[in-house]
């Protein structure tokens, strides 16, 4: 099995959920999408598999018996293992976001999700991953040219001058800058930043993006930071670095 694994170029995904209904249905779907899939039913089994098989990415539920997803993630990170992880939970509230930052997951996806969205996220995280290094999503400070975001203090600066932003706009900037070069749909931004769907939700996103662009002095025609992808969403186009 090890031999066949090394000869196959397919990315190896470890899928962890105690609901067999989820693993049974997602595993073949991920396999069809071009991944090699191993499944586990709880956090402890996941840790063992992670150590023995070194998957390229772990997709993990949070509420599980034995060892829950959050605890498993913490243990992995404490041991210096930076295998990319997508946690299947929602991070909406400011407190939760700070906690998520400490945890060091690469991305979050809220149940119930469209399985194709999971495939897209896996691909994006794999593309973004820097082997052996903490992900941008776990960095306390981020920089892109003259723009810096201090996530601990919940502040953003442009050329050292603090930007005046509403909490939503700041959260939006934080989400986009931690997912650079990734096409993010308005629905996904609503889910990640607002935590809810709204009847006029996509317009609410556009309003905040406009606020963000005004504050950043970003020209939508020739964007330095946030690009509009017509009919699809937004993309953070700047080169992002983790600061300290």
């Amino acid at each position: 099995m090890t031999r066949s694994a090394s000869s196959l170029p397919l990315p190896h995904i470890l899928l962890v959920d105690d609901e067999t209904a989820i693993t049974e249905n997602l595993a073949p779907l991920l396999a069809r999408a071009g991944f090699r899939v191993t499944t586990a039913g709880d956090g402890r089994a996941a840790l063992q598999l992670a150590q023995n098989q070194h998957p390229d990415l772990i997709v993990m539920d949070v509420l599980m018996p034995q060892l829950d997803g959050r605890a498993a993630l913490r243990r992995l990170r404490q041991s210096g293992d930076w295998t990319p992880i997508i946690l299947l939970t929602q991070v909406g509230e400011a407190v939760e976001r700070a906690m998520a930052l400490e945890e060091g997951a690469d991305d979050y996806l809220n149940k119930p999700f469209d399985p194709h969205e999971l495939v897209a996220r896996i691909r994006a995280v794999l593309r973004r991953a820097r082997p052996g290094q903490p992900p941008l999503a776990a960095a306390w400070k981020l920089a892109c040219g003259p723009l810096t975001v201090d996530r601990r203090a919940r502040r953003a600066y442009l050329d050292e001058a603090e930007l005046t932003l509403t909490p939503k706009a700041l959260a939006l900037l934080e989400y986009l800058i931690t997912h650079p070069d990734e096409l993010v749909s308005r629905d996904r931004l609503l889910d990640a930043v607002w935590g809810w769907d709204y009847p006029a939700g996509t317009r609410a996103v556009d309003t905040r993006i406009a606020e963000l662009r005004r504050a950043l002095g970003d020209d939508p025609v020739e964007p330095q930071y946030i690009e509009t992808v017509p009919g699809q969403g937004y993309r953070f186009v700047g080169q992002v670095e983790a600061g300290r």
Binding site: E93, A94, P112, T166, P167, K168, W196
Partner: peptide, 22 residues
Amino acid sequence: LRQLVADLRKLADLETRELEYA
């Protein structure tokens, strides 16, 4: 069903959610 679950969550959230007053 998805809408039902989403609305139930909203209802539960509203009790504790910090409102963004502006």
